[in-house]
Simulated scan of single mutants.
Amino acid sequence: MQRTHSPIVFPRWYSVGAALVAVILWSVAPLLAERAHTSSPLQLTALTLLAGALATLPLSRRVNVASCSRGWQLGIWAGIPLLILGAVSTYFIGMRLAPAAEAALITYTWPVLFVLLSQWSRLGKLRLAGVTGALIAFSGAALLLVPQALSSGLGGATVGYGLALLAACCWALYSWLSQAAPVSITPLLPRMLLIACAITTLVSVGFEGQLVLPSGEALLAGVALGLGPYGVAMVAWDKALRWGHASLVGSLAYGVPILAGLLLVLAGVSVLDWRLPTAALLVVIGCLNAGR
């Protein structure tokens, strides 16, 4: 998302409040995804993206994308929707194959990857703080991955962890492209979500034969995912970055993996052992160090 600030100065609590809304909604996403487990991941992705497009409609406005180079036009209208599709779908699939809290934690390593991409694109090299932060964060992910890989090989949960890591890569690339784009991406978000939803629907019909609307709890959870974590949260995050200091607001996002894991444990979805909080702490420390 574009990290451009408004010339109007708002009280600091405006930006902090908006950021906290986004953080809380993102933290609820793994629990909502778990509640929608009866729906196929691709159909859940399509429903979530559609609800997200509707929730972000107030942001939509005309942007002169035609003034960009052909490469950027392709990146905006094809690359970014495909990254959103990849991030959401691999996240949902990963959570079906691996424990929800652990898969969510691995996905939330994306800020470290985003920092590394930003440093490389701006400086042509990686700073020591960024590399050290990445090593700390991924040591937390390894704490979850390695024992599972040693005990069960490359199947099952290990594949789920790999897909969660792929989701993190997609979010990092999406954030980097949004920051580097020559035009603001935020007003285009509803249309890009609709494009991603259309592609997901076609893929779902091609692989699953038919598109079936989820029912009951899965339907409510899918709509809530789109309206909240992939709708209102993205609007709130955009406002937080525009109203306040990016460094202060950004630091609040590092609490998402801890809060998300806590909610899953309290809901009885995940079992708390020493590895999960230790890994969460390492991810947060790594993100903070990389973003210095």
Rank of each mutant, 00 (worst) to 15 (best):
L135V: 12
A180Q: 09
V235L: 04
A33Q: 11
T4W: 09
M1W: 06
I285M: 10
V256M: 08
V9R: 14
A51M: 05
V203T: 12
P81E: 10
S40G: 14
L202N: 03
W237M: 03
Q179D: 15
S89N: 14
Q2H: 13
P99M: 02
Q148M: 03
A33F: 13
V9E: 14
W120Y: 08
A218P: 10
L105C: 06
G153D: 11
S152L: 02
T201C: 15
G209L: 12
G286N: 04
Q148C: 01
L173P: 06
V223C: 12
H37E: 14
V63Q: 01
R191S: 15
W171F: 15
G162K: 00
M1D: 09
W176L: 07
L263W: 07
V65E: 07
L113R: 00
A98K: 05
G94H: 06
P214N: 12
K125M: 11
A233E: 08
L59Q: 13
K125L: 10
Y230L: 13
L20M: 14
A246D: 08
A78F: 15
G244A: 04
M234I: 10
A168M: 07
A224I: 04
T278E: 04
L177I: 04
A18L: 10
P229K: 02
P99T: 01
R275Q: 14
A18D: 08
L173Y: 12
L97K: 01
R61A: 13
S175K: 08
V16M: 07
R35P: 00
V16I: 13
F92T: 01
T200F: 14
R3I: 00
P30T: 02
P81I: 05
G226E: 09
L123R: 10
G75A: 14
V9T: 12
R12F: 12
T186V: 13
A167Q: 07
A198T: 11
V88A: 10
T201G: 11
G156E: 12
P41F: 12
V16A: 11
P277I: 10
I24E: 04
H245N: 14
W13R: 01
A246P: 04
T158L: 12
C170I: 03
V232W: 11
A290Q: 05
G228H: 05
A66Q: 11
E102G: 10
S39L: 13
V28T: 11
L248K: 01
T107Y: 11
A46G: 15
Y108H: 07
L177T: 01
G261S: 13
G162S: 06
R191Y: 09
A157H: 02
Q179N: 13
G133I: 00
S247Q: 14
I195L: 15
G222T: 11
Q43G: 15
P229H: 06
A100D: 02
T48G: 07
A87T: 00
T38F: 07
A22F: 11
L25D: 08
T132R: 07
L25W: 14
K239I: 13
V21S: 13
G17E: 08
A104P: 01
W243L: 03
W72G: 02
L193D: 04
G231I: 02
L272F: 06
A172M: 06
G244P: 01
A280C: 05
G71S: 05
P257C: 04
A157N: 01
C197R: 01
Y254N: 05
S27Y: 05
L116Q: 08
L50I: 15
L25R: 03
W176P: 03
T200S: 15
L189M: 13
A51I: 05
L49I: 07
M95H: 06
A240W: 09
